[in-house]
């Protein structure tokens, strides 16, 4: 009697466990066999981690550079996207080996504190203020500071802020300061000021849904342009220059980071070959370059590339 009960229990357990087990196995096998190359579950290659600002991720640039680096150095590159602020924090904690960011003030501090080896600018574009084609606040052609003042007056347009301590968010704060506003007061404004708290791509999608204005880097905007009704309204002003740098985390200060591999990645970013790839990235798809490469001196103003 008890034996029989046990057997039914066992049978039912088997019956219950069978479908998920079969499904998992089937999907795993299918997923494994589908690809042209069989990827072993535990690759023997070392892993290198890079934390990148969302604009370099959302534009697809990292997806484009990653396979090249992996092939060249036989390494698995783990690309983690985060705002520049968080990317640098991950570097400081030793959770990533390299960062690619665009927040010069934060970068200088990162290096001054000893966490970063050296700031190596590798590309730039510029920031633009985008908004609905009808431009209800009438900011078209203004300076960035005047445009922000106009939005703050509540002249019929809301503004979506990244609000995530990213490089773009830093730039937004800088423009508010230059325009004579206290950012901490601005961010508490309700009605016209919206803090999105997401990456560049999602912020653009959100701005589009709300028919609002936002500050974006030109590269991400170009890459998303096909999905958006937004148009560029403010693109003139030296403040709008947007420089991307690569910084290896300093193994002397943060033990355990992979300094050899990260040095190679930094080298690769400024190599003539990669610089050419960065310059050509998106030209075919979006009609113009998203990032202007440079491995020498830093440009001082917008329009140096034209």
């Amino acid at each position: 009697m008890r034996e029989g009960n046990l057997r039914t229990l066992k049978n039912r357990l088997v019956k219950f466990l069978a479908p998920p087990v079969i499904l998992v196995t089937a999907i795993y096998v299918l997923a494994g066999c589908e690809g042209p190359t069989d990827v072993p579950p535990l690759p023997p290659q070392p892993r290198l981690r890079v934390a990148t600002t969302t604009s370099l991720y959302d534009t697809g640039l990292w997806g484009y550079l990653e396979p090249m680096f992996e092939r060249k150095y036989r390494v698995e590159l783990d690309v983690i996207y985060a705002g520049s602020g968080r990317a640098i924090e991950l570097g400081r904690r030793g959770d990533v080996d390299v960062v690619t960011v665009h927040d010069p003030a934060l970068e200088d501090k990162f290096i001054a504190d000893g966490y970063g080896v050296r700031r190596i600018p590798f590309a730039y574009n510029y920031f633009v203020i985008v908004g609905p084609p009808s431009d209800p606040a009438g900011i078209k052609g203004m300076s960035p500071e005047d445009a922000f003042s106009r939005l703050a007056d509540g002249n019929g347009g809301s503004f979506v802020s990244r609000g995530d301590e990213s490089g773009t968010h830093s730039m937004e704060k800088k423009i508010w300061a230059n325009a004579g506003y206290n950012y901490e007061k601005v961010r508490k404004e309700t009605g016209w000021y919206v803090e999105g708290g997401r990456g560049m791509g999602p912020t653009l999608m959100m701005t589009n849904e709300k028919r609002a204005y936002t500050l974006t880097d030109a590269g991400t905007f170009l890459a998303y342009k096909g999905k958006l009704e937004l148009v560029p309204l403010v693109e003139k002003g030296d403040i709008l220059l947007n420089v991307y740098s690569v910084i290896a985390v300093n193994p002397d200060k943060v033990p355990g980071v992979k300094s050899d591999l990260s040095a190679r990645l930094v080298e690769l970013m400024v190599s003539p070959e990669t610089q050419k790839l960065i310059g050509n990235y998106g030209v075919k798809e979006y009609g113009r370059q998203l990032f202007t490469p440079f491995s020498g001196s830093e440009p001082k103003q917008v329009g140096d590339n034209e």
Binding site: P20, L23, V24, I27, Y28, L30, A31, G32, E34, G35
Partner: peptide, 18 residues
């Protein structure tokens, strides 16, 4: 079409959750 990316992601989800 058993899209490779979709299947990989689904498989990985199942394996991790299980």
């Amino acid at each position: 079409s058993f899209d490779q990316e979709v299947m990989e992601i689904a498989g990985r989800s199942l394996v991790i959750a299980v």
